[in-house]
Design a protein around this nucleic acid. Structure first.
Lengths: 244, 244
DNA sequence: AATAACCTTTGATCTATGTCAAGTAAGGTT
DNA sequence: AACCTTACTTGACATAGATCAAAGGTTATT
């Protein structure tokens, strides 16, 4: 199952720069850039550098200097914290339109790896910060995005702290579907560009538990496992699995 | 064990208003207000309404219209999500200087209850938002605070998703101590204005597990249980309990 | 000072989920 | 097509932490 926002790299990449970037940008309306007027977008455009990255690559590490920040324009990422003994918590998955580096912090607060081939619209953090400093609308937009992330993070704390395994899986499927829906439009088939282990590491479970629950939901005809994702057969029962 | 930032209400409350609020404010340097220059602080001061609230009171509910937002000036709060079946996740505890309503969202994203008697410096959300809109330094400060909260939230996800009970308790004690230290200065004795059940609901554990672990750490002479809080006897071993 | 209400601690047992260990399927490569 | 690698699934068993139950302590109330 392939998700096609027509590949932004197609009409963008030219010695790492591009003209026409923002106006042709498929994710513009979802991204922080939506805050900018024509004048400001020109300034941003000058700073932007398109990049293509292949699947399954680490692209930044928690604690390292945050030289560059970016909007994800196509493909998917996972954002994660790794403990020294190998345990891993996936903080979230990024989809097209998501901005990485919202906090403008001088070091990255999490590590990032690509799940799929990916294109990004990258900026020098300092340069971007300065633009933000003199562009109140941009900070406001960053703040709104960060606040939204914060409330999602808090919702996820409830999931991790207080919900049982089946609820976690059900809620994950629903929230991931909702996130994709906003970008790609409604669909009963939910693409899962991440593996079972990634889902487990996001939900604080083991791969076996995730697998068993997905199998069970399949047996109960609530979902149908299809290659690359899954189809939601019974929305109502899926929702009932997790009390509000 | 009583924490005394001298009570801000002393020289503040006068028909719900006050002169001299901000200059006398004990938490000003920690709070979002620190972003403001003399001119701006005057504008803010006009909008501010001091309030006193007694211990163990719910003061706002998730989902309700966010009419007012505030800086906590003394006392402690807990911020929580409640599920319909009674399960509860405490998102965090607020200490003097913390701002409640950082996101400027039109509805509250979590519920809040007082742990102790409390004083707050409250604002009408709309009024405050408008001030923020024309005061870039203020939004910037809100954004920094929100970003900081976001990274704390992500750290807590790791705790909830991937750490064992003893690590959770140890990390909680260290992070709570660190938070208080910034406000009240260094101290080996850590006040715990919240109960064991609150700690459990913050760490995704049961009260029995929290109690057992605190008892064990006491037996091992890592901490000493004292009324209203506890004393850290062996910082090194406490830190060793949780791998980075 | 005695009583009551509420926390907290401790012990005994249970269980949801983790761990360990095979299998099976799906791509990718030669 | 056969092989190999990697991901997923399933089963059997183990365990960290939950649940149930009963004391102890503290603080507030009369």
């Amino acid at each position: 199952m392939t998700l096609t926002l027509p590949d932004i790299a197609d009409y963008c990449v030219e010695a790492g720069r591009c003209k026409q970037v923002c106006n042709g940008c498929k994710v513009r309306l979802f991204a922080v850039c939506a805050a900018l007027d024509d004048h400001e977008i020109k300034a941003l455009e000058k700073m932007a550098r398109q990049k293509t990255l292949s699947a399954r690559q680490p692209i930044m590490f928690a604690g390292e200097p945050a030289d560059s920040i970016f909007t994800l324009t196509s493909g998917f990422l996972r954002l994660q914290h790794d403990l020294s003994d190998g345990r891993r918590q996936i903080i979230g998955f990024a989809a097209p339109g998501d901005f990485i580096g919202l906090g403008l912090n001088s070091t990255y607060v999490y590590s990032v790896e690509t799940l799929t081939d990916v294109t990004v619209c990258g900026f020098d953090r300092i340069e971007f910060s300065m633009l933000a400093h003199r562009t109140p609308g941009l900070i406001e937009r960053l703040h709104r995005s960060a606040s939204h992330e914060l409330s999602l993070a808090q919702e996820h704390m409830v999931l991790l702290g207080r919900r049982r395994a089946e609820e976690r899986v059900a809620l994950f499927l629903m929230s991931w579907r909702k996130k994709l829906q906003r970008i790609f439009g409604p669909s009963v088939t939910v693409p899962l560009p991440m593996g079972r282990q990634d889902i487990a590491d996001h939900l604080g479970l083991t791969i076996e538990t995730v697998s068993r629950i997905i199998s069970r939901l399949g047996r109960e005809k609530i979902i149908l496992d299809v290659p690359g994702g899954l189809r939601v057969l019974d929305d109502g029962r899926l929702m009932q699995l997790a009390p509000a």
